[in-house]
Computed example of a mutant assay.
Amino acid sequence: MAPSSMARVSGRCGPEAPIDLVQLATNTLGNRDLEVQVLHLFKSQSSSTLERLANETDMSVRLDLVHTLKGSARAIGAGRVAEVCENLEGRMKQAPGSATEGLVAAVDEANTYIRDLLAG
């Protein structure tokens, strides 16, 4: 599953893609098995993080969840998710009840893309 073949399978590549496949390949040293593993891990972790975020009331825990998700997103090249996390972190520090719908949408988009990549 080379980055170019993954992009063809998904039908989306380039700057509009939710995952930067070149960054993913770079971060996994071109190891295709590792790429698949980290994509599965991100999909699972991001979904559980969103669930925890929706149910968590402690602001410091909520900030930690968003911060951790930001790092995970950067590691796989999910730039939009990382950007939304960073913006949300800033808003949460100013207004603790900040809405997370934008984050949910960005994660859903990335996870749909990952699902399509892995299904191909």
Rank of each mutant, 00 (worst) to 15 (best):
S47K: 09
V38Q: 02
Q37I: 15
P96L: 03
S44A: 11
G120H: 12
S48H: 09
G30F: 09
Q37T: 15
L65S: 07
E109G: 04
A2E: 11
N111T: 11
L88Y: 02
A119D: 12
V107C: 05
R80D: 14
C13H: 15
S72H: 07
G14D: 06
L21I: 11
Y113P: 03
N111P: 08
T68A: 14
A105T: 12
E35G: 07
S5R: 14
A119Y: 05
A105D: 13
I19D: 02
R91S: 05
L65C: 10
L117F: 10
K43M: 13
V104C: 05
M1N: 03
N111D: 04
E86G: 08
R62G: 06
G79L: 12
K43F: 13
A73L: 07
K43L: 07
E35L: 03
G97W: 01
M92P: 01
L39E: 08
D108L: 08
D116P: 00
L117K: 01
L41N: 11
S46V: 07
V104F: 05
Q23I: 14
L21G: 06
L53E: 06
Q37S: 15
L53K: 04
S44Q: 13
S10H: 09
E16L: 14
A73M: 05
C85D: 05
L50S: 04
A82Q: 05
Q94Y: 00
G71L: 05
V81N: 00
S47E: 11
E83Q: 10
H40V: 11
S47T: 14
L88D: 05
D58C: 04
A110P: 10
C13W: 15
G79W: 10
R80N: 13
I19Y: 02
L41Y: 09
S47Q: 13
S98V: 10
G120D: 09
A78Q: 04
S72R: 02
S44G: 10
L24Y: 05
E109H: 07
R62F: 07
C13I: 09
